[in-house]
């Protein structure tokens, strides 16, 4: 131990005179976390991979593609005709009516070369919605993992307890951690949707159709993307809440898996009308444009053109997922605020 034992000669910083920032420290703690860095790194790699795959699968068909397709179509027509000849011979031998047995003769003029072209250009207008959903799902899973590890690791190292020696208000400690998570997952949600747009426009400009985007392209897409950001935040908060209640990241992920893989399916089997209250249903309904319809095929009668359905609106989806997040986090925070800490 060194001889440098002097405390500062000036009076030490006093509680009132300090200008510390719990929020900034927590942001640093968040960004320094290796697991979070790895998750984000994997997401970036995944995006690069998806772009690369997109660039290599989509393209405007070349002359060679067209002639290959024409050859394939002619081959198919020839095969078809040969098969029919054989069929007719067979039918005649068996005494069946050949036209009935082998079907009508094929009309080669109905066949289109386009149907034989294996490659197509990327069509942003038709892919935008599905892509936004896929990116929302990915971001939500990522946010859930991040939320769970963010607080789960605090509990397994119990460093959150040490933090109470510095910030004794437990609500403030938890509130700040949740605040950092909400900010980070909102950013993640925005970046994910921006990444999808970037990917979409990259594919469109290199391997896409040049048909102009429809007028309602943005009016449909942007609100769905906004709701995707909300879903990302809620998923992060639910992961946080679960790991905070269980006080362990791994166990929280286990519970999440069991819920989605087993509990929800069991509930569906038990009573299909419960479907509308399940977390996964409502999460999808939150982001899907116009919500989702749950058809009741069993209640369909002959004079209906469509089975009756229950509409899970965007609003219901948001409220159910939001309520779930608030309850699961609220219970954990309340227990943390009131219980003894060892």
């Amino acid at each position: 131990m060194s001889a440098m034992l002097q405390q500062p000669t000036a009076p030490g910083p006093t509680a009132t005179g300090r200008r510390g920032s719990l929020f900034r420290a927590e942001v640093h703690r968040f960004t320094a976390r290796r697991f979070i860095q790895v998750l984000v790194g994997l997401a970036v790699l995944g995006w690069l991979g998806a772009v690369a795959i997109g660039l290599s699968t989509f393209r405007e068909p070349t002359d060679a593609d067209v002639s290959a397709a024409r050859a394939a179509m002619e081959q198919a027509i020839a095969d078809e005709q040969m098969w029919r000849e054989e069929c007719l011979t067979e039918a005649e031998r068996a005494g069946d009516n050949p036209e009935v047995f082998c079907g009508p003769p094929l009309d080669a003029s109905q066949w289109r070369v386009e149907d034989f072209i294996g490659v197509e250009p990327f069509d942003l207008a038709s892919a935008a919605g599905a892509g936004a959903m896929a990116f929302a799902a990915g971001a939500a899973v990522l946010a859930f993992l991040i939320g769970a590890t963010w607080i789960g690791a605090e509990w397994s190292s119990r460093s959150i307890v040490a933090l109470l020696f510095w910030v004794p208000s437990r609500l403030k400690v938890m509130g700040t951690k949740i605040g950092v998570l909400v900010a980070a997952t909102a950013l993640l949600g925005v970046v994910a949707q921006a990444a999808w747009l970037a990917m979409g426009f990259i594919l469109r400009s290199f391997v896409g159709t040049s048909t102009p985007l429809p007028d309602d392209f943005w009016t449909e897409l942007l609100p769905a993307q906004g709701r995707s950001v909300l879903l990302t935040v809620l998923a992060g908060v639910i992961g946080f809440g679960l790991a905070n209640l269980i006080r362990n990241t791994g166990a929280a992920l286990g519970v999440g898996f069991v819920y989605f893989a087993i509990v929800e399916n069991a509930l569906r089997i038990y009573d299909i009308t419960l479907e509308r209250w399940l977390l996964s249903t409502n999460a999808v309904a939150l982001v899907f444009p116009g919500g989702i319809r749950l058809y009741d095929y069993e209640a369909m009668t002959a004079n209906m053109s469509e089975p009756p359905y229950y509409l899970v609106t965007n609003l219901q989806g948001g409220l159910v997922v939001g309520a779930f997040a608030v309850v699961i986090v609220g219970v954990g925070v309340l227990l943390f605020a009131r219980r003894d800490i060892h």
């Binding site: 910083p13 510390g20 920032s21 719990l22 900034r24 703690r29 933090l163 510095w166």
Partner: peptide, 8 residues
């Protein structure tokens, strides 16, 4: 990280 929370 602790120092930052308290402005040390």
């Amino acid at each position: 990280l602790l120092a930052q929370t308290a402005g040390v």
